[in-house]
Each structure stands twice: as C-alpha cells, then as structure tokens.
Nucleic acid binder design. Structure first.
Lengths: 266, 266
DNA sequence: CGGCTATTTGAGAGAAATCAAGGATAGTGG
DNA sequence: CCACTATCCTTGATTTCTCTCAAATAGCCG
C-alpha cells in the first residue's frame, strides 16, 4: 500500500511475521482460580517482605479476611493486559514475568517478580501487562478497592506501596538503559549479577544462581534473540567466568569480572 | 587481560571508546542558581498542571513561601546523577531531558519533561539521573523535606504525586518495550506520535510538532545513532508521511499511517 | 525407550553502526 | 549587517554484529 504510492521509495520492512511467536488470545482464557487457603496470613512466608509487613495485630486479621491465596501453575497467567483490574497480587512463592506484546507477537518482558513483590499495575481499570507464572506460583489476591481503603487509613501500608512503585520505576529505568545502550555481553552480565544480588549472593567469589525462566524469557527481557543469549552465555563460559551445569543453573566463577563486564568496563 | 588467559577465546569487544561523546565531569559543576522570582505561585502558568493544582488558598501561600524559581539556560544541568538530592523541581516553562551515562560515555535519555512535570527522583539521598535543560527553562524548586511534610498533611498533593510516579513508571515501561523490540521506523514513528499527543495534536490530519531537542538527544532516547535517526526521518519524508521544514520542526502529513507504523502494523 | 521441547551450534544475510565528508544553521564578533 | 566559525544535520560507503534460517544435540516426561 505504501509501496504503491511510490515504487521508487524503499518500503518499510520489518521482521518476518510468518512465524508468530506469541499470540494474544482472542478471548482471554480464564486464569487459574483454585483457592488454596483462606486467610492464610498467619503462616505466610512472604509476610515480612511485602506490604503487609507494616500491619499490626488487629489490622492483620482484617487484612486476612479480604485476601485469598491462589495457585497459578507454570505457564498460566495471573492476569492479562487489557483485562479488567480487580486485584493486586503479592507473590508468596514462585516467580512471575510481566510482559507486553506488540501486535505481531514480538514480546518485551519488563520484570521478573518473586516472593514479596506486588504486581497488578493498572490504569483506567485495566491491567497494563500480562503476568504469567514461570513456575508453579502461589499468589495472594487482594481486592484493589479493599487495598485502597487500607492505604487511606494506614500510613505504613501507604508508604510501603509507594516504595514499591518507586522500586518498579527504578528497575524500569535501569532496564531502559540496558536495552538502549548495552551490548549483549553487558546485558547478560548485568542480568546475572542482578539475579545473584537478588538471591543475596553478591560476595566476590563463586555464586550459584537458579534461572527459573527459559532462554526465550531472558531474550525477551534483554531485547535479544534466544540464539544470542545462548551464544553469549557460551562465550562467558569459555572465558571461565561462568559454569553452566545445566540450562537452568549457572555458577558465577568470577563475580568481579562479571560485574565489570556488566558496567561496560571491558 | 581476559585475552591473555586464553588467546583462543574470542575477546569481548565493545564500541570504540576513542571518542567519548559524553563525559562525566570529575567534579559536578555548579548548577544554575539564579533566582528569578520569589513566591511566584500567583502568576505561575504551570500551576494547573502540576502537583500544586490541589492546593487551597492558604496552603498555596504556604507553598509559595518555600519554593524558589530558577532559570536554567539551554545545556545547563538542573541536577546530576549522584549529586545530593535536596530539591524536587516542577518545570514551569521549557524542556528538560533526564539521562544516565555509562562509564564510557554512552548515554540513555529516559525522559523528556516539560511544563507541569515534576523531576528530582532520588534514592538514599542522591539523584538517579542527570537532568539537563534542552532550551532555556524555568523550574520551580521545592525542598524535598518541605514537600514531604506537605505530602503527609495533604491527601490531594499526595495522590497527585503518586499519580506522577505511576505515570513515570508507565512511560518507562513503554520506553522499554520500544527499546527492546521496535525497529528504527517504529521508534521514530512512536516518538513523533507521542510528541504530537503531548502537544494536543492527535487529530487525524496534519499536525506540526516542534522538536526542541537535537538529533543526538532523540538518538539517545530511542537507542539509535544520530545517523539512523536522520536517515529514518528522511525515509518517512520520502514516503510523504512527514514534511521537515527544518531540523527542529516536523509536520505530520499522515497521522493515521504514522500511528500504524508506530505500532508495527506495517 | 521414544517423542517432545528447549537449547546449542553453524552458516549466511541484512540492518544498523561506524567511518567519512559535505552542507546547512546558528551564534559571534567585527 | 555581514562574514566567520563552530556545531549540527544529512548523506554516502563500508564494516560488523546480531538476526534469521537451519540443523543437531540435550534434557525431560510419559
């Protein structure tokens, strides 16, 4: 169509769409709804890390009444972009990826979230991303309206929530810097260093990190293809910086070197 | 060093650093400090667009006492990354870019801000980005501590501020999607459509937009080189989608087409 | 054990970066 | 007011890195 206007004008090409990697379902499939436990706060292991950390005795009980726990199996969605937003979710165990799709199936993963993180960003009543469980994941479902009233009344919850949003913005800023200006080696190195830090393994020796997600999730997070992710990890392995016992487990042999690569100092 | 360990192993290359485009100053130069007006709120044209919008009569007077207005000339910095954070700033007139540098001078611009926007993100007492005026810019300087107490007391200010942070996160998310997965044509088209929308020119006909910033700012925002930015704009011009009377002014001739390119539908 | 999926590896193409001028624009000072 | 200079932008030629296409291997579950 554009081309017909002026055949001499070079048409706009884009990547081949004959293979659509990710397809938006015509109708959102029902998310997993199995309720695992009611009022589970008393035994919740994510308690100290999430927004409920600031609740006092009585408040916690009230909170426990409004939440429900759900198991979301690996690959299932917690919610989808454009779906009506009714709940926030805190992640109790497991791991969730947040992602956005372009119309032709290209995907950008914007975050990996795990225990204690809160997800459910929405605007004008609709979620802003897809949230999908990377592995079997337990989430705690909090009605948005109920949380709003908690936020009104409890400064501790409010500031915890604001801190979460700020964290999110900071992570997205760092991601934008990585996506816009870092090389594949720097991207992979940054990703691994971050993972190690998240897991509390930031000492300068050897650290084993667990990659819950597959190569395509990593690729879509770092703005690469799975082949480039694979090749780059292989290169780091050949340099003796990493060991890769299996695809989902990586041992950092030289954290100092990896950190310096992550910052583009090589 | 890496190479000496194993000469057979392909070394990690990165872009040539013989030309450092952006250099972090050894000591942060003093930002512009010329005070233009004291207590300027009564005549402030950004009032209705910024966080002070929710203030009542008496509150506004109190607010006016704590703020100062500063003129920041084109190219000067409002603040720098790692500088001690004492103030938030609302932009009264002009335009500011937020940017982060890698050690070797690569730069990622993360936002362009203009009238009514509030800048000054910080963590642990230090700013998180460089903020530089693109053109002569007037900012309203608000001590962080003072704003904090306003936030405590005034729900309207609080929610306005939270909304600003959410906006920022949303913009960064969209930027990450663009940086990670869009082609140069899609990036430029998205950028221009956004600009037109910001300026309130989203109707489907012709729209003239003003590009305050230079090509290198656009390149560093979109994760491209200036050459690619220039070539891509030329291609859009050759297709009849844009007219480019001069480098800082662009007329969108076909908004529908541009929007469809922005979303990767071609 | 067999089939499926995920990952790795290889070969080749293509798009954007880099390198290199040339042209336009704006700001400065005579 | 105009000439001069510095900077910015555009365009061209070439290189190179990542993507794409293709196939083999490894790992996993039934």
């Amino acid at each position: 169509m554009l081309e017909s206007l002026d055949a001499r004008v070079e048409p706009f090409k884009k990547s081949d769409t004959s293979v659509i990697r990710f397809k938006r379902p015509a109708v959102n499939p029902p998310a997993a709804r199995r309720i695992v436990v009611d009022a589970p706060c008393l035994t919740c292991n994510a308690q100290k890390q999430s927004i409920c950390a600031g609740l006092k005795e009585g408040e916690m009980e009230e909170f426990a009444r409004i939440v429900r726990t759900r198991l979301v199996k690996a690959g299932q969605s917690v919610y989808r972009e454009f779906e009506e937003a009714k709940y926030f979710f805190t992640i109790v165990t497991g791991e969730v990826r947040l992602a956005n799709l372009l119309d032709d199936g290209r995907r950008q993963v914007t975050a990996f979230n795990s225990t204690g993180d809160i997800i459910g960003d929405h605007q004008k009543g609709y979620y802003l991303s897809d949230a999908e469980a990377i592995c079997d994941t337990v989430v705690c479902q909090i009605p948005i309206k109920a949380l709003d009233s908690f936020v009104e009344d409890l400064p501790a919850v409010r500031s915890a929530l604001v801190a979460k949003i700020k964290d999110e913005a900071n992570n997205l800023r760092r991601l934008a810097i990585l996506l816009g200006r870092k090389t594949p080696v720097e991207k992979i190195a940054s990703f691994l260093v971050n993972r190690a830090q998240k897991a509390g393994l930031s000492f300068n020796g050897t650290a084993e990190i667990n990659l819950t997600m597959g190569r395509s999730d990593i690729a879509d997070f770092l703005g690469l293809t799975i082949e480039t992710v694979s090749r780059t990890i292989t290169r780091l392995k050949n340099h003796g910086i990493l060991e890769v016992p299996n695809a989902h487990s990586i041992i950092i042999k030289d954290m100092v070197e990896l950190e310096s690569l992550a910052e583009g100092e090589k």
